[in-house]
Structure formats: structure tokens, C-alpha cells
Amino acid sequence: MTAVASARSSTDLKSEVTFLNHVKYEHLVAGISGGLASTLILHPLDLIKIRFAVNDGRQHSTPKYTGIRNAFATIFQQEGLYGLYRGVTPNLWGAGSSWGLYFLFYNTVKVWIQGGNVQMPLGPAMHLLAASEAGILTLFITNPLWVVKTRLCLQYSSSPSSHSIVYNGMVDALRKIYATEGLRGYYKGLIPGIFGVSHGAVQFMTYEEMKNRYNHYHNVPINNKLGAIEYLTFAAVSKVIAAGSTYPYQVVRARLQNQHYSYGNVSDCVKQTWHYEGWRGFYKGLGTNLLRVTPATMITFLTYENVSHFLLKE
């Protein structure tokens, strides 16, 4: 075979490698499994993190807690176990679908960039690109669920204010948000959410780079199945790095989605937070967030890796 024929054959083969060829449901199932497992275990911390994040010290309707332990005790005493799991249904839907879609889109884009060769390592820039594209696609699909989860988590046992709407579950919240705010209501917090795509991009870049370097050091394929300790360690480190560098967007996003207070837009929220609370306002709830998201990510990634390897028989 001549060099020209060989090149033509290679081009023809590459042309057959389309984006849809790399869509594998196994990544969707594995991602959903990881998201559901971590959410069921750690939802109370997520609820407390949201309540800390929206507390700007000016809203009398917002409960005030002195710390994580006090928040747990107060919520359990005033609202019972149910209070700790307010918003869990949309959180399960949101986390399950988000992780499932994210892993699906991320792996599809990554393998497409690799040209179908899963053994070809990518650099940090390509990992960032794949994770960013996956994050944006996932965000547009799941943002309504995150709005509902935030609204339900911010319903308190005390009497609601006159302008607050009481939601009786996820479906009721979806219906009432659409009735009172229209389609735009489902996409409150979308802009800071788009900025927040950088969080997932940084996390996945760090996680993938750590896995690749570890496998390269041990001279094994980059898609080699690792042990639980390796997955847990890489997931924890990548999450701490990502959370510490991108947390402010989560505070802004939660405040925009809060039905008890209204900001004009993202810029107004940022200005008011800075004016009344300084830089510390952008990091409210960070301690609770790290306490929740670090083990959540460890559970999610460990579950995902094991389920995906089992389904794909890698």
C-alpha cells in the first residue's frame, strides 16, 4: 500500500469517527448512580450550606445559625428529620441527572477529541475544553431542578412572609415558578452558573491529570482501573482545589435563586454582597460546602468509576 493510499485510508477511517459514535449510556448510568449515592447520604449538609450562603445578615425571615452543629440541632428541633431533607427530591433528580449527563457529555467529547483512541492522553487544555463543554450542556438542561431545590431548601418552619410562595414538593414548585415567573424563573442563577462551569472544568482537569500521571508513572494504560484509595484521593484533592478557587459563584447563584429577597441582576448581587459583607460574604458557607462536597465527590467518583468499568468491562 502506498503512502497516499495509506493516508487516504486513514482519512476515511477518521471521517467515520463521528461524535455520536462515542455516546455510551454506561457513563450516564454510572454518573447517575454516583450522584444519587452521594446525595442521599449528604443532603442535610447541602441544605445547611445553602442557608448559610443566603444569609446576608439583613433578612429577618432567614434563620441564623452559629455554626454547623447549631444548624443541625436547630433544624432537627424545629423541623424534624424532614427539615434536614427539604429539597431532597429535586436534589436527587438534579444531582443524578447532572452527574449522569456530565459524565456522558464529558467522556463523549473527550473520546471525540481523542479520535476514538481512549489510550491517547490529553493535556490540561483539552481536559478543560471537554469539561467546559460538558458543563454548559448539563447546566442548560438541569438548571430548573437546581432552582427548585434551592427554593425548597429555603422554606422554613416559621410563617412565610407575605410575598413568599409556599411550595408543596418538586412538581408543585415547578408549576408555581412557571405560573408566577414564567420560563425565565427556571433559569435564575444561570449566568453565575455558566461562570461556575469553571468549577467542574478545574475539577475534572485536576482529576484526569492526577490519574494520567499516576498511570504513566506505573507504566499502565491511562484508562486502567485503579484502586479505591487512588480514586478517593484524586477526587478529594481535585474537589478542594476546584471549590476553593470558584466558590463565590455558588453564593451569588444561591442568592439570585432565593425567593425571600430580590436582586436586580448578577451585578447588583455582587455589589450588595461586597458593600454589606466584604470579601467574606462571597465565601459564606464554604466550610460547610467543603465538608459536604469533598466526601460527596469521593463517593460519586468512586461509584462512577466502579460502575462504569463494570458496565464497559474495561
Results as ranks from 00 to 15, higher is better:
Leu145Trp: 04
Leu154Gly: 05
Leu145Ser: 05
Ala131Thr: 12
Val148Met: 10
Glu133Lys: 09
Ser132Gln: 03
Leu145Gln: 05
Leu145Thr: 04
Phe140Cys: 13
Ile141Val: 12
Gly135Val: 12
Ser132Ile: 01
Pro160Asn: 08
Phe140Val: 14
Ser162Gln: 14
Cys153Gly: 02
Leu137Val: 13
Phe140Lys: 13
Gln155Ala: 03
Leu139Thr: 08
Ala134Gly: 07
Gly135Asp: 14
Ile141Trp: 01
Arg151Pro: 05
Cys153Asn: 06
Thr150Trp: 01
Arg151Thr: 09
Arg151Ser: 07
Glu133Asn: 10
Leu139Asp: 05
Pro144Gln: 03
Ser161Thr: 10
Leu129Asp: 09
Arg151Ala: 04
Val147Tyr: 08
Tyr156Thr: 07
Cys153Ser: 06
Leu137Asp: 14
Ser161Ile: 11
Thr138Val: 09
Trp146Lys: 00
Ser159Cys: 15
Gln155Met: 05
Leu145Pro: 00
Ser132Asp: 02
Ser162His: 15
Ser162Leu: 15
Thr150His: 07
Leu152Ser: 02
Ile136Val: 14
Leu139Phe: 11
Leu129Trp: 08
Ser132Leu: 02
Leu139Cys: 11
Thr138Lys: 05
Gly135Trp: 10
Ala131Lys: 10
Ser157Val: 12
Ala131Pro: 09
Gln155Lys: 08
Ser162Asp: 13
Ala131Gln: 11
Gly135Lys: 09
Ile141Met: 06
Ile141Phe: 07
Leu154Lys: 04
Cys153Val: 04
Leu145Arg: 02
Tyr156Ile: 02
Ser161Lys: 12
Tyr156Lys: 04
Leu129Arg: 06
Leu145Tyr: 04
Leu154Val: 08
Arg151Phe: 03
Ser158Glu: 15
Gly135Ile: 12
Glu133Thr: 06
Gln155Cys: 08
Glu133Arg: 10
Leu137Trp: 15
Val147Leu: 09
Thr138Ser: 08
Glu133Tyr: 07
Pro144His: 01
Ser157Phe: 10
Ile136Met: 14
Ala134Trp: 02
Arg151Tyr: 07
Glu133Cys: 07
Ser161Trp: 10
Leu137Asn: 11
Ser157Gln: 13
Ser162Cys: 13
Ile141Thr: 05
Phe140Leu: 12
Thr150Met: 08
Thr142Tyr: 00
Ile141Tyr: 01
Ala130Gly: 07
Leu154Asp: 01
Leu152Asp: 00
Arg151His: 09
Ser159Ile: 15
